[in-house]
Design a protein around this nucleic acid. Structure first.
Lengths: 209, 209
DNA sequence: TAGATTGTTAATCGATTAACAATC
DNA sequence: TAGATTGTTAATCGATTAACAATC
């Protein structure tokens, strides 16, 4: 496969397009143009076509795209035509919220393990998954073919947990802790920093008026 | 005030710099260079200086920046030298997790109200804040000077809730629902889309190997 | 054929990086 | 003064937008 570098913004939009197409499918719409998608998700039609062009030609000139077909392509491009196993580290409020969120299931993600250090919650269940101690991290990741780690521990513990996940062979990490984490190049890291998001809003509120 | 357009990426980094400076303050470090900050947060030193340059000159050539002083400037720039009142709509898992997260308190945010439609949880408390019904949305926002709304309701309800928030006078919205929301120009909207984040990881996992 | 819409190229815009004079 | 580091300009890089030939 010829690998051009795909902008991250493009990937995020593809995910959003796919969700919009799902909506259209529910409305039994059969065909859609780049212009309609653009309006639906708030970007330009050129943007939509450019994003798709990284991966191939999916439409018909003068006609548009077949909704269901394009949806299928996008799911495949996004790697959502198969399942990914997730391990959640930290079963506090955020970790629990994440585990309980139903939306992920439909999109190809399986929560395979949930770990915490707190003896009081170890042994209890979340979504049918038993919360276990940190000692099983390595074996769970290896035995259950887990590729994706979600970090919802306090900031101070985040780097250590990251190192453990990396050593056990996790390939990608979604980090909710407000810490800048160091990972080897081959591990994919994404940060969802709730504080930063709130503070960006604070900035624009304070700055513009 | 002369308003140059500040890149959003710059604002996000300022928030991260400020957190790093806080760490340095805890370690009683007095001075820091752009190069040290750069290594600490994983960007280039030119980036650090450029980001700061949007707002003024905060350092001393040949010396660097006074940690505490720069921290103070950044907090001011980010609008964190005062408090912002927040209303959370949706007290499910994610809304609760958000409400219970302590980090926001320290950074100038006060959770003033939490609303939900579920009769079973209305009347219960989260972090000392009573969960109320949607009928009080307007009065709460107006009376308690709430500028910031956090949307943690299911996707289907998100646009309606958004409209209500906008009508009641909220100035900025942090949206956790996986929906593209329409807001008037003057309202600042940020989306934290957990699904999209997970799917970006899925993409790179599937694409690179 | 006329109208619509794609796929793609070229132009534009904006953000990052490199380089260096200013200066402590 | 010599060494260090800022603030800023110019060069580079990358992403978005505009425009249009291809084609259904």
């Amino acid at each position: 496969m010829k690998v051009y570098k795909i902008p991250e913004a493009t990937v995020m939009r593809l995910s959003i397009y796919s969700r919009y197409l799902k909506q259209l499918m529910d409305d039994d719409k059969e065909t859609v143009s780049s212009g309609e998608i653009a309006i639906g998700v708030g970007v330009s039609s050129a943007q939509v076509r450019k994003d798709l062009a990284y991966f191939g030609e999916f439409g018909t000139r003068g006609v548009g795209y077949k909704v269901e077909e394009l949806y299928g392509y996008l799911m495949k491009i996004l790697g959502l035509d198969r399942r990914w196993n997730i391990i959640i580290i930290g079963a506090g409020n955020l970790g629990s919220a994440f585990a309980l969120y139903q939306g992920f299931m439909d999109r190809g993600f399986t929560i395979s393990a949930i770990l915490d250090v707190d003896k009081k919650i170890i042994g209890t269940e979340l979504e049918g998954v038993k919360i276990e101690g940190m000692d099983v991290l390595d074996s769970r990741v290896r035995e259950q073919n887990i590729t994706l780690g979600v970090i919802t521990v306090p900031a101070v513990a985040a780097q250590e947990v990251t190192d453990q996940l990396v050593n056990s062979g996790v390939k990608a990490i979604l980090n909710f802790s407000p810490r800048v984490l160091k990972v080897p190049n081959e591990v994919i890291l994404r940060n969802v920093d709730l504080s930063v998001n709130l503070e960006v809003l604070s900035f624009y509120l304070a700055f513009n008026r």
